[in-house]
Amino acid sequence: MTARLPEMVQLSAVAPVQLFDFQQQVLFSPKERGEGFIKLAVTTGKRGARSTPHAHPRDEVTMTLKGEAVLRSGGQEFHMTEGTAMRLPPGVIHEVEVLSEEWVVIAAYCDECQLCRGPDGGMGA
């Protein structure tokens, strides 16, 4: 049996990819590796960037590192500012809109979810 060891990734070594209105740096992804852990990503959006309403099959946890965005869910608005942590239980429909010039968030969530509206209005992952 091969011993499992901790893994370390430097954010500066991860190239960003376009995620519709956002730039995302995926640090660890079960989808890419075929393993059963959650996705960890740093996502950046400019003012006006938004997601489409969506839900995740498992918890999502986030920590805003910079800027401000509003998360809308259940008829309420939750302002996410620097240092704000959020937990979204499984199945909670929510959408996000960036309010500041730039918003940077770190998020851990299930990788199989559809997230943001694409340029053609369709869903993407």
Results as ranks from 00 to 15, higher is better:
residue 1 M to D: 10
residue 2 T to A: 10
residue 3 A to P: 10
residue 4 R to M: 12
residue 4 R to V: 14
residue 5 L to Q: 12
residue 5 L to N: 13
residue 7 E to C: 05
residue 8 M to T: 11
residue 8 M to C: 07
residue 13 A to R: 10
residue 14 V to R: 12
residue 16 P to E: 02
residue 17 V to T: 14
residue 18 Q to W: 07
residue 19 L to P: 02
residue 19 L to A: 11
residue 24 Q to R: 14
residue 24 Q to L: 05
residue 26 V to P: 00
residue 26 V to S: 02
residue 28 F to S: 08
residue 29 S to V: 00
residue 30 P to A: 04
residue 30 P to F: 01
residue 33 R to F: 08
residue 34 G to A: 06
residue 34 G to P: 05
residue 35 E to N: 03
residue 35 E to R: 11
residue 36 G to C: 04
residue 37 F to E: 14
residue 39 K to Y: 12
residue 40 L to I: 13
residue 41 A to I: 00
residue 42 V to Y: 03
residue 45 G to P: 05
residue 45 G to I: 02
residue 45 G to W: 06
residue 48 G to M: 06
residue 50 R to L: 06
residue 51 S to R: 05
residue 54 H to I: 04
residue 57 P to W: 03
residue 58 R to I: 09
residue 59 D to I: 05
residue 62 T to G: 09
residue 65 L to V: 02
residue 67 G to C: 03
residue 68 E to S: 07
residue 70 V to C: 09
residue 70 V to A: 11
residue 74 G to W: 03
residue 74 G to Q: 09
residue 77 E to F: 01
residue 78 F to T: 15
residue 78 F to L: 15
residue 79 H to P: 08
residue 80 M to S: 14
residue 80 M to N: 11
residue 80 M to L: 14
residue 80 M to D: 08
residue 82 E to N: 07
residue 82 E to I: 01
residue 83 G to I: 02
residue 85 A to C: 12
residue 86 M to V: 15
residue 86 M to K: 05
residue 87 R to N: 12
residue 88 L to V: 13
residue 90 P to K: 07
residue 91 G to D: 03
residue 94 H to T: 01
residue 97 E to R: 12
residue 101 E to S: 08
residue 102 E to K: 00
residue 106 I to E: 04
residue 106 I to A: 12
residue 107 A to S: 13
residue 107 A to F: 02
residue 111 D to L: 00
residue 111 D to E: 14
residue 112 E to K: 01
residue 112 E to A: 08
residue 112 E to Y: 07
residue 113 C to I: 14
residue 113 C to D: 10
residue 114 Q to V: 08
residue 119 P to R: 09
residue 121 G to L: 07
residue 122 G to E: 14
residue 123 M to S: 15
